[in-house]
Design a protein around this nucleic acid. Structure first.
Lengths: 111, 111
DNA sequence: TTATTTAATCGTATATTTGCGATATAAGAT
DNA sequence: ATCTTATATCGCAAATATACGATTAAATAA
């Protein structure tokens, strides 16, 4: 396929797509739910909750972190992850822009 | 990798992930924007707007349709696509459930 | 009937994602 | 110093996604 053509789209489109991609796996949705429900963030127990190997969970956490959806700090042999609400707020707005704003001017579907 | 383990997660997690996946490419975001902005839906011009080959655009449209984000009807040699606002509404609520509801009980990030 | 137009599908190449076991790393416990 | 615990990273295999050209299908125009 030669090259991915992502760079041919606007930054806003790319950002929104990247955010969606980070959410595009049930394991990552599940991780976010766990992180959101706990108030403290010693988060090793995620591995025990998810039906996946430790290395796989670690990889999903890395993806969420790279996408900016979660913060993480290494803390000795343990790690500490928690949700980056600021980023969520930003992207929630982007989604609203896509979902809601456009809906106003085009209420009825034509097919 | 043996098998994808999607089936090990809840239906709600899978559905939300599937919706996010459909949005997880800038071309599909761009397509949705075009569809939302036009009130009529003779939508062949999408191919001319996007920097992608006709077959590739057709594939992206198929994915959006399979995910339920758009409706499409074959109409002779032409096709007619438009946004399925109902599905968007549903998933917008799912996102709110993930984004907003959980935020209330956990306002401050701990790392 | 035969072209033309529009869009879907097929075949294929390449890139990316997912998953796991094995290994490495790093701090604390013994 | 060595063992243990908690995570990250590496290397690999298999599955999926992305992209395109070529072909097919289906309706209309000539």
């Amino acid at each position: 396929m030669a090259i991915h053509k992502k760079e041919a789209f606007t930054q806003r489109e790319q950002d929104l797509a990247a955010f969606a991609k980070a959410l595009a796996h049930p394991a990552r949705i599940a991780i976010l739910k766990v992180l959101a429900q706990r108030n403290e963030c010693i988060c090793g127990e995620i591995v025990e909750i998810l039906p996946l190997a430790q290395s796989t969970v670690s990889q999903h956490l890395k993806e969420l972190k790279n996408a900016g959806l979660i913060n993480g700090s290494v803390d000795g042999p343990r790690s500490c992850y928690c949700i980056n609400w600021k980023a969520f707020e930003k992207f929630n707005q982007e989604f609203s822009w896509l979902f809601t704003n456009l809906k106003i001017k085009n209420e009825k579907s034509c097919c």
